[in-house]
Design a protein around this nucleic acid. Structure first.
Lengths: 159, 159
DNA sequence: GAACTAGAGTTGACGTGACAACTCTAGCAG
DNA sequence: CTGCTAGAGTTGTCACGTCAACTCTAGTTC
């Protein structure tokens, strides 16, 4: 019988299809962004976040919090992006500590161009292929899961 | 206005939550598998596929097709798994070409143990948090998208 | 002011994944 | 037999992401 420790073939198939569809979707979005605008999804996320802030400057920790990323992930990403000239890590603060991240003109231009294309891709691959019921189901599931998992990780948990 | 080249704030938020939930889910599944059974999700996929075949042997291309992976991804993964003793690449064929992948006893044992735990995790994180209607909606979306994207990539496309 | 400490940011190691270039085998044309 | 080609499998390179360890700064305490 279908107890907690096993899944029926239908359930496996469902899970499999779901995960595969998800991977295909994310991959395609990423690929289009890379091909048409020369930036990756991770880079796009950072650029957009930075661009949405008054003076295009932020601290690493802010950025990490805002994106829900680990700070080491942000640091690595920034290193790669700095190498490509999309942004600069400045010694803003006092005496040699790099405390600021600033968008370069090149980075700013890249986002501007990418945003519209990215929106178009998402609309084409996601929204145009979603019925209202599917969107509702996915939306409800997403917010529920985010709440569930982020709450679980911030609490001590059931040891 | 909400034309094809822009998304409303609600749409952005929806997309953002969706992608984040997906990442959290995949990460959590992976983490549990790793912590409780010492194998990654990628390894699990390969082990299960191999285990589901009569003599526990397969060709790389079959494996890739069955999983929907690129063959280089399979090759890299096999290299890592061979290093850990979960499987063996045998010189099955004729004269020095490695044409077969075989599960080792150690690998077989690892899957056996992991399958139940993995099923439990999936049930806990996915099925238990999904109403039948939501599952149906997500299932329909998944199969539709898989069909759409795999068909698009196998055709010449609208060049 | 010297030692302690907390937090910010960085780095290294490693597994993962995509893409392109390569090698080897086999089948076929001449 | 020689050369051509197709396909299988492998490898290198790079980007991405996590974890753990590290450095540096600043604020506190004595």
């Amino acid at each position: 019988m279908a107890d907690a420790a096993s899944l029926s073939p239908e359930e496996w198939a469902f899970w499999d299809a779901w995960m595969r569809a998800q991977r295909l979707l994310a991959g395609e979005v990423d690929r289009v962004l890379q091909r048409d605008f020369g930036i990756s999804k991770a880079e796009f996320s950072i650029l957009v976040t930075l661009q949405g802030v008054p003076d295009r400057r932020m601290r690493v920790t802010e950025l990490a919090g805002s994106l829900g990323w680990e700070k080491s992930r942000v640091a690595h990403q920034l290193t790669r992006m700095e190498r490509r000239g999309l942004l600069e890590r400045s010694e803003a603060g006092a005496a040699g500590r790099r405390t600021g991240i600033a968008l370069t003109p090149s980075g700013e231009e890249a986002v501007e161009r990418a945003i519209r294309g990215h929106a178009r891709t998402i609309r084409r691959l996601a929204f145009d292929r979603l019925t209202p019921e599917q969107a509702a189901a996915i939306g409800a599931w997403s917010t529920g899961l985010i709440e569930h998992l982020t709450a679980a990780s911030s609490e001590p948990g059931e040891s």
